[in-house]
Design a protein around this nucleic acid. Structure first.
Lengths: 196, 196
DNA sequence: AGCAAACCTCAACACCCGTAGAGTGAAATC
DNA sequence: GATTTCACTCTACGGGTGTTGAGGTTTGCT
């Protein structure tokens, strides 16, 4: 880390800064490549730091990944929506998570990128993201297929997010947020409200 | 390879059989784990063969992956459907590909499993699977959002397939094919037919 | 039987990885 | 200013990887 001029000095501040530099590099690399292709050495190099320091701060590659890739649990408007408001609410939520520009976006992309190949990432997405929201969605959906419909809401959102941010399917990447909202909202409504 | 008793003998047949044993082991492992976690050695061990033989037959790990993970181009009923028949047709197609029990199913799962972390697998899914079918779907959908809607059909199917066969979200795994068809068909219809 | 070819294995190389422990130099404390 | 503390680096180890070339052993042909 080359320290900037106007930043706070002192041992603690300096440490916190390099710690964050390592984490930022890790987030970026895990968001862009698979777990195995990211090496402690490559993260250290991007952070301008010795590989051993990464170990010293984060213990292991696994723990570094855990710190870099996660699903931020901010206020989720979809958890307090009724049936009519659910489609718009889940769209709001997913856009907020994936289309921001901060570290949270990269943490989410890193989690999603690895959820099919990294067991722990897969477990988090399945159990702590999809299933958790599924439980609430099912309760407002009701009916015999409530659980399935709720799970499929998650599946649809996952598919769209992956197409747009991970696989980068051109037509989905180039679409404006409003277009996606306009097209997807009725689709999700059909999913949560069934025939009626 | 331990040869079975009732199988054809001869040099060629034997070779073809071990070649297929290697490929079968590779398909299974690439379908179940990420590219990096599958090793030439583990594939060779599962096939009961020396690692060097895998190299001799397939040239490199990359080529072995290419042979094991692909999207079989069989007759695709979705390519000859009109707008009204598209939802049912794409569902038929995806069920046929993912719910069979042969080598094709594993080849497809292997491709999907790695499409977020393996660049070539990602390219195939994006360009040769999604975009190709998107082109046809868009032509039968029509309207200003045709391309986007067509791409989103692919996104929805991908999300469902991943939930069911890769991430294994319980509610989606346990659902019967008929349930999925019944719930998803109107959803896809809403997507391809828009407001009308 | 004897020879050639092909299937297959052995052993090894060169590389890169995650990780560990000792060491260094600067900042904080007295 | 001396000493301690802590951020940080150097060096290295052990292991696993893809890959290779030479050797062995079975098969098929004459």
């Amino acid at each position: 880390m080359t320290p900037a001029d106007d930043e706070p000095v002192g041992r603690d501040a300096r440490r916190r800064r390099t710690e964050e530099a390592i984490l930022a590099a890790a987030r970026e690399q895990f968001a862009g490549s698979g777990y195995a292709d990211v090496t402690i050495r490559s993260v250290a190099a991007a952070a301008g730091v010795d590989p051993a320091l990464v170990m010293q701060y984060y213990g292991s590659k696994e723990r570094l990944f855990g710190a870099a890739a996660h699903w931020p649990e901010e206020a989720d408007s979809a958890l307090s929506a009724d049936r009519a408001g659910l489609p718009a609410a889940v769209l709001d939520d997913i856009f907020e998570r994936f289309e921001g520009q901060g570290q949270d976006r990269e943490a989410v992309v890193a989690l999603m990128r690895n959820c099919l190949t990294h067991p722990e990432a897969g477990r988090i997405v399945r159990d702590e993201v999809i299933c958790e929201r599924q439980a609430h969605a099912a309760s407002v959906i009701g009916g015999p297929d409530a659980e399935l419909r709720a799970a499929l809401v998650g599946a649809v959102l996952m598919g769209v997010a992956m197409s747009r941010h991970l696989l980068e399917v051109p037509a989905v990447v180039e679409a404006q947020q409003d277009d996606l909202r306009r097209v997807l909202e009725p689709v999700l409504r059909q999913l949560v409200e069934g025939g009626g």
